[in-house]
Nucleic acid binder design. Structure first.
Length: 413
RNA sequence: CGGGACGUGGUGUAACGGCUAACAUGCCUGCUUUGGGAGCAGGUGACUCCGGGUUCGAAUCCCGGCGUCCCGACCA
C-alpha cells in the first residue's frame, strides 16, 4: 500500500477531548475516528488490525468446533421480556418505531441464540453444538470512557455452546480456557494476560475472565505467585486464597478484561424451553456455555500495553502491515525506485507492506513511522544506497542496522 | 445516574464586556530542501455548540438545553 494513497493521514496533536492513550494514539495515527462518546469508526488501518484479531479468533474458534453465524442486532422486545432482561438490564438500548413497536439493540445474544438453537437441536444426537459470531453489540454505558476500551457500540465475538449435561459442558469449558489462552498468546499479549476467577452469577460458582495487565485497567486482580492464576477482587472476600493451589501469596495488579467465559447452564434453556430428547425419549434441558471477546477492547489494550512516547508498537500478528518501507528523497530518484522494488519483492513473498512514498521530509517520515507502529521498518535512502544497502529497524528496538535488501527480507521470513 | 471541568477555522490554543476574532499547525500555489515533524513567499479556512436574556455593545456576564472529558456509582 502506498502511503500517499492512504485515506487517512497522521496528526501532530490528539483532539483535546481524548485523554486515554489508546484513543490519542489511534486517532493521531489514523486508525480510528470518534463519532460520539463511546462510538468509533474503524478506518482502513484500524480495520486491518481488527481483521487480524478476528482471524486469529476465528481460527481458534473453528478449531473448537465452532460454526460461524451472523445474528441480527435488532431484537424483538418479546424475547427480552421472556428472560426478564427487558426490565432488568439497565444498559439495554430500546428503540421504538412509528408504529409503537419496541425492539432492543443486542448487547449480547442469548435471547436470540437460544430460540435459534431450538429450531435445529432436538435430539441428544445433535449435541454438543457450537455457534459463534462476530458482531456489533450495543450497551448504554452511562459513562463511556477510555477510548475504545469501553464503548457503547463495540465488536464482540460471542460463542455459545450447547451440551447434554453439565459434565460435557465442564469438559468443553476447560478446553475453551486453553483456546482463549492461545488467542491471546497469538495476538501478542500472552505473557501479560491472566486467567482470572470471577463471579459466576446465580448458577455457577465462578466464571473466568482473561485479564490483561495495564494501568488503565478497571479491574483489580490478585495474581497467585505460585501458579499465576488470578482472582478478581470482586470475589476475593469469599475466595482469599488461590482457587487452584490454595496459596495465600497473591499480589494485586490493575488489569482489563479482554475476554470471559461463562457457564450459563440451563438459565436460558429454561426461559425458552430449549430441550432435547435423550436416549429414552425423555425431554432434557440443554446445558449452555457462553464465551466472549471484545475485539476493539483487545486492540486498545494492546496499544495501552506496548506504546512508547513516540507512538504505537504493534505485535507482528496484529499489525495492519508488518513492514513499513520508507523512501527518503524524491519520487523518481534511486531511493524511490529501489524502495519500490523492495516492496514488490516483499509483497511477492506474502509480506504486507506500507510504502511511505509521500513527498515529505525524512524527519516527518520517521516520526510517522514511529507513530504508526508497524513492527519492522526499512529505510532506503541515498545514504544506504551508497553502500548498496538498506537500513532495518524493529519498532520495539532502538538499534538500526545496515544490511542488504535480501538480508532485510530474510529477517521478515 | 451523582459530582467536577470544558465547548472559538480540520486540529491545538489566544483574545479586559469595546477595532475586521489572533497565533500555530493542517490544507492549496510556487520556490527550495530530503537521516528525526527544515525554510521562504502567497493563499484557503470560524454564524465563537444551540436557544433565550442583560447591555449602547457579548466569544466574554446570566438562564436553559445539547455535547465532550474526568472522578464516583453501575457494568457476564
Amino acid at each position: 500500500m502506498r502511503q500517499s494513497q492512504l485515506f487517512t493521514r497522521t496528526r501532530r496533536e490528539a483532539p483535546k477531548d481524548e485523554v486515554a492513550k489508546n484513543a490519542q494514539l489511534l486517532i493521531r495515527a489514523g486508525y480510528i475516528d470518534k463519532l460520539q462518546a463511546g462510538v468509533y469508526t474503524y478506518l482502513p488501518l484500524g480495520l486491518r488490525v481488527l481483521k487480524k484479531i478476528e482471524t486469529i479468533i476465528r481460527e481458534e474458534m473453528n478449531a473448537m468446533g465452532g460454526q460461524e453465524v451472523l445474528m441480527p442486532s435488532f431484537h424483538p422486545k418479546e424475547l427480552w421480556q421472556k428472560t426478564g432482561r427487558w426490565d432488568a438490564m439497565d444498559d439495554l438500548y430500546k428503540v421504538s418505531d412509528t408504529s409503537g413497536r419496541e425492539n432492543a439493540l443486542g448487547p449480547t445474544h442469548e435471547e436470540v441464540v437460544t430460540p435459534l438453537a431450538g429450531t435445529f437441536l432436538s435430539s441428544y444426537r445433535d449435541l454438543p453444538m457450537y455457534i459463534y459470531q462476530f458482531q456489533n453489540k450495543f450497551r448504554m454505558e452511562l459513562r463511556a470512557k477510555s477510548g475504545i476500551l469501553r464503548g457503547r457500540e463495540f465488536i464482540m465475538k460471542d460463542f455459545y455452546s450447547f451440551h447434554r449435561d453439565e459434565a460435557d459442558l465442564a469438559e468443553y469449558y476447560a478446553q475453551m480456557k486453553d483456546a482463549y489462552a492461545r488467542v491471546f498468546e497469538r495476538a501478542g499479549i500472552g505473557e501479560r494476560t491472566y486467567l482470572t476467577y470471577a463471579s459466576g452469577g446465580s448458577f455457577s460458582k465462578y466464571s473466568h475472565e482473561f485479564q490483561m495487565l495495564t494501568d488503565v485497567g478497571e479491574d483489580l486482580i490478585a495474581i497467585c505467585d505460585k501458579c499465576q492464576i488470578a482472582i478478581n477482587k470482586e470475589i476475593r472476600e469469599d475466595q482469599p486464597n488461590c482457587p487452584e493451589c490454595g496459596s495465600s501469596d497473591l499480589h494485586e495488579e490493575k488489569a482489563i478484561e479482554v475476554g470471559n467465559i461463562f457457564e450459563l447452564k440451563t438459565k436460558f434453556s429454561d426461559a425458552f424451553g430449549l430441550s432435547y430428547k435423550d436416549e429414552a425419549g425423555k425431554d432434557q434441558p440443554v446445558v449452555m456455555g457462553c464465551y466472549g471477546i471484545g475485539l476493539g477492547r483487545l486492540m486498545g489494550s494492546v496499544v495501552e500495553a506496548y506504546a512508547d512516547e513516540k507512538g504505537i508498537v504493534w505485535p507482528d500478528a496484529i499489525a495492519p502491515y508488518r513492514v513499513h518501507v520508507l523512501a527518503l528523497g524524491k519520487e523518481g530518484e534511486e531511493s524511490f525506485t529501489e524502495a519500490e522494488k523492495l516492496c514488490a519483492e516483499l509483497e511477492a513473498g506474502g509480506v504486507e507492506v506500507l510504502f511511505d512514498d509521500r513527498d515529505a521530509g525524512a524527519g516527518e517520515k520517521f516520526a510517522d513511522a514511529d507513530l504508526l507502529g508497524l513492527p519492522h521498518r526499512i529505510v532506503v535512502s541515498k545514504k544506504t544506497l551508497a553502500e548498496g544497502k538498506v537500513e532495518y529497524k524493529a519498532r520495539g528496538s532502538s538499534e538500526a542496522i545496515l544490511c542488504t535488501a535480501n538480508e532485510a527480507i530474510e529477517k521478515l521470513a
